[in-house]
């Protein structure tokens, strides 16, 4: 059904408009918005695989990447996406900027706003930073991750990967496992995958499970073996060690024993279950290193590849 929707959307792209000015989170999007973005993204997949990757869709537009947190794949993905669409892309180096001198987010935003960018892509360690920014600037704001709240383009690229591999999302059983408490990827995926009709299992030790999560229409498990049963997709999350400010877990090795994705645990899922991971991975902590590299099971590289296509779609749609 999703495919049909996407095809429909593709045919009538001209008629469809996105409901939001900014891409701050999946929570703000309608199913029509999501299908619109995914259908656009699909068209960019082949472009990215071809020799000439450059378009002039965003020629003359200025995109500023404002990353307050270190990032490899998201920042480079957004940078490539912007460049392939023909935009002028500037990535701010926070380490050398006035922010290090104590400038507030709003002042930084006002400064950048005065330079008339068309797009600001922001990643920030505080939840809601992109919302605050969007209230202060005239251009479009794209959230590349805010605190533990949302990471919408990651969820969209995950959805696109699943659709590419499984042909659909509706009716699939998808397990999201690991440090849910600190994860914006988990939150965005919960909103998106439930919206698209998946049956979502959330697997985490209770210390890493946010309060009242079951109210989002998911199934909660602290026993990974139960949570993986019969799943089509196993999405592993990074154990965000750098955010642990007190003892959530006893040790990495115990975590691996109970929550690391190992071949025996993967056996509980469906035979053709796929492994996903937003990266960067902690091999031997949340995922067995051989599983991560198993090209028959792991689609981690595809996620990165489709990430560029999804971000191109988002930049194109939200910039107009």
């Amino acid at each position: 059904m999703v495919i049909e929707l996407i095809l429909m959307a593709t045919k009538s792209n001209k008629a469809i408009k996105i409901s939001q000015k900014h891409l701050l989170g999946i929570q703000d999007l309608s199913i029509t918005d999501v299908n619109f973005i995914l259908s656009e993204a699909k068209q960019f997949i082949n472009l990215n695989r071809s020799k000439n990757k450059k378009l002039d869709t965003l020629r003359g537009k200025t995109q500023i990447n404002l990353f307050f947190e270190p990032s490899t794949r998201t920042q480079s993905s957004f940078e490539l996406a912007g460049k392939r669409l023909g935009a002028d892309v500037m990535s701010m180096n926070i380490v050398n900027s006035a922010i290090k001198k104590g400038e507030t987010l709003i002042d930084t935003a006002m400064t950048l706003n005065a330079m008339h960018p068309d797009l600001i892509v922001i990643r920030h360690q505080d939840s809601g930073a992109c919302n605050l920014l969007s209230q202060k600037v005239n251009c479009t704001v794209i959230n590349a991750g805010d605190g533990r709240r949302e990471h919408p383009t990651q969820a969209l690229l995950d959805a696109l990967t699943i659709i590419e591999k499984k042909g659909k999302i509706q009716g699939l059983k998808i397990a999201i496992c690991g440090d849910i408490l600190h994860s914006r990827v988990a939150r965005s995926n919960i909103y998106l995958l439930t919206m698209l009709g998946a049956d979502v299992n959330i697997v985490a030790p209770t210390n890493l499970m946010p309060k009242d999560l079951e109210k989002f229409g998911i199934n909660k498990f602290s026993d990974m073996k139960k949570g993986l049963y019969d799943c089509d997709i196993v999405m592993m999350l990074r154990l965000q060690n750098e955010r642990m400010n007190s003892s959530f877990l006893a040790s990495n090795r115990e975590y691996y024993e109970y929550y690391g994705l190992t071949p025996d645990k993967l056996d509980i899922a469906k035979d053709d279950a796929l492994i996903m991971h937003p990266g960067p991975m902690n091999r031997g902590i949340e995922i067995d290193t051989n599983l991560a590299d198993d090209i028959n099971k792991s689609v981690i590289q595809e996620q990165v590849e489709l990430g560029v296509a999804v971000r191109m779609a988002c930049l194109k749609i939200f910039c107009n």
């Binding site: 929570q27 939840s127 809601g128 805010d146 605190g147 533990r148 709240r149 949302e150 914006r184 939150r187 946010p210 309060k211 009242d212 999560l213 109210k215 989002f216």
Partner: peptide, 13 residues
């Protein structure tokens, strides 16, 4: 408050 809103907003409860 620690609850559904803090989970949704991604704020420490």
């Amino acid at each position: 408050n620690d609850g559904i809103i803090s989970t949704k907003l991604g704020l420490q409860g």
